[in-house]
Amino acid sequence: MVTIKDIAKELNLSYSTVSLALNASPMVSKTTMRRVKEAAREMGYKPNAMARALVLKRSGIIGIIVPDITNPFFSSVAFGAEQAAHKRGYNLLICNTEWNDELESHHLTLIVEKKIDGLLIASVNKKNHLLEGIIKQDLPLVFISSAYPSARCNFVGIDAEPGGYLVGKHLTDLGHREIAFVGGKFNSFSVQRRYAGFIKALADQKIAFNKEYTLSGEFSIESGYENGIKLLKKFPKVTATMAADDLIAVGMLKAMLERGIRVPQDFSIVGFDDIFIASLPGIELTTVFQEKKLMGELAMNILLDELNSGGDSKREKKSIVLSPRLVIRNTTAPPHSE
């Protein structure tokens, strides 16, 4: 079995230099790191996770908290994070909260007890007192998609407000005036930002938004379906809607089609996230694209860079804000004229 000593001897480097390079430490130059990793690969070196944990006093495990791993947005984020972790010799522990505050608290407690090396948070109840405690522990931490408002933390995601604005402008440019907003949970910071951008776009076009056209629910196809039916019954004048995510939009599309409402000829629908089902034949949803997998990769690399710098709490935090992009497909058109 090839060891770090073997690589050090082959490259005429010290044991500590090779060890630091294999752990992507910023204390080693990029040139040396590349030499070490190439040699390790050619020599068939396999890191001993248990030995590394003992030497570095680390578990080699990074946690990620997601509210719904079955939602393609969050599974794509987790996939990107896992790939980035494996490339750097770490494992990912996925904690699925199912949008349940009690289960979320259970996972946060578990994370502290298991002494993981760092934490990614794709969504969490910002009022959870356990979260504030974790932040104070100086555990390397990155928020994904939804920033934490009361602390200076690492963040990766899009600015959701311009994304909402793109949707509002697209629908008003098509000529829609009676437009609804169907959200998931409105205590979600990212949903609040999407909603704010949507409302601003309407205001810029001098269109007064009827607040009764705001519906809330869950981030699911079922919830979108139920709200689609409610919208048709209560607000027949509405000709278009922005859904807070693609699952809600697909549920609304199903409700419309079952009741003989043609999309987009009679009713326009726009989603958010551009998950894989959005582009499928028969759906072809107009939506806002997010770099989901890239978010996970970037977040993991930020976290591991901080971890390998010694987890210095005074280290400058990073915020990477990606640009949203409107993807126009077949669920939006000018309003139908009688």
Rank of each mutant, 00 (worst) to 15 (best):
M1L: 07
T3I: 10
K5W: 12
D6R: 15
I7Y: 07
L11Q: 01
K30F: 01
K37E: 09
E38P: 08
M50Y: 08
A51R: 05
A53E: 04
A53S: 09
L54C: 07
G63H: 04
I64G: 04
P67A: 03
D68C: 09
S76F: 08
V77G: 00
H86S: 12
L93V: 02
L93T: 01
N96G: 14
N96P: 13
W99S: 11
N100I: 15
E102I: 12
L103F: 09
E104G: 03
H106P: 04
H107I: 04
L108E: 01
T109D: 14
E113N: 13
G118R: 05
L120Y: 02
I121R: 12
I121Q: 08
E132F: 13
G133W: 05
K136G: 03
P140L: 10
S145E: 10
P149W: 11
F155K: 00
D159S: 15
D159T: 11
E161I: 09
G164C: 07
G164A: 09
Y165T: 00
G168V: 11
V182Y: 08
G183Q: 05
G184F: 06
F186T: 12
N187T: 14
S188V: 11
S188A: 14
S188L: 11
S190M: 07
V191S: 03
Y195G: 02
A196W: 06
A203Q: 14
A203Y: 08
K206N: 15
K206P: 03
L215F: 14
L215E: 04
S216A: 13
F219Q: 04
S220R: 10
S223V: 09
P236M: 13
M242Q: 08
A243K: 06
A243Y: 06
A244K: 06
L247S: 01
L247M: 08
I248G: 01
M252I: 09
M252N: 01
P264S: 03
Q265I: 07
S268A: 09
G271V: 01
D273I: 04
D274E: 14
F276V: 06
I277C: 06
I277V: 12
T287I: 11
Q290S: 02
K292A: 09
L294P: 00
M295C: 00
A299F: 00
M300A: 05
M300N: 04
N301F: 02
N301K: 11
N301W: 03
S309P: 09
S313A: 12
K314C: 01
K314T: 05
E316N: 14
K318G: 03
V321Q: 05
S323E: 13
V327Y: 13
R329T: 02
T332F: 08
T332R: 06
E338P: 10
